[in-house]
């Protein structure tokens, strides 16, 4: 198995774990952890594709920088929503967030 394959397999498994976490957890912060793992898996794949297929095209590294930005933004806005929700309802349990449905 080549190193590219090994990295892609790691990315696939991490994405699966992250998807499981995002779907199964009831707490907003834990759901965000699942999303972080999925984005981490995407970054592993992007670095592997850049390094082993087209290392001469540096736009590949730019993709990784953008995903890192998305991760930071997701954390910032997610925690802001958690803070707002905690102020309003005293909990960030998504089981109790049916009222957000409108």
């Amino acid at each position: 198995m080549t190193t590219l394959m090994a990295a892609l397999v790691v990315g696939a498994i991490l994405f699966g774990i992250g998807l499981y976490g995002a779907l199964s957890q009831t707490n907003l912060v834990m759901i965000m952890m699942g999303v972080e793992l999925m984005l981490g898996a995407a970054m592993v794949n992007l670095v592997a594709f850049w390094r082993f297929l087209h290392p001469e095209i540096y736009a590949g590294q730019m993709f990784v920088l953008i995903v890192m930005t998305v991760m930071a933004l997701e954390m910032a806005v997610g925690f802001a929503i958690a803070t707002g929700r905690f102020r309003a309802k005293g909990s960030v349990e998504m089981e109790e967030a049916g009222d957000l449905r409108g």
């Binding site: 190193t3 498994i13 499981y20 390094r51 297929l53 290392p55």
Partner: peptide, 28 residues
């Protein structure tokens, strides 16, 4: 959730192993 996670992993693994990725290039 476990089913969705396993399904997603297997789907991506199928792509990983079925695609011909070509030769590995040298990095700078």
């Amino acid at each position: 959730s476990i089913f969705a996670g396993i399904l997603a992993t297997l789907g991506i693994l199928a792509v990983v192993f079925l695609v011909e990725w070509g030769p590995v290039a040298e990095a700078a």
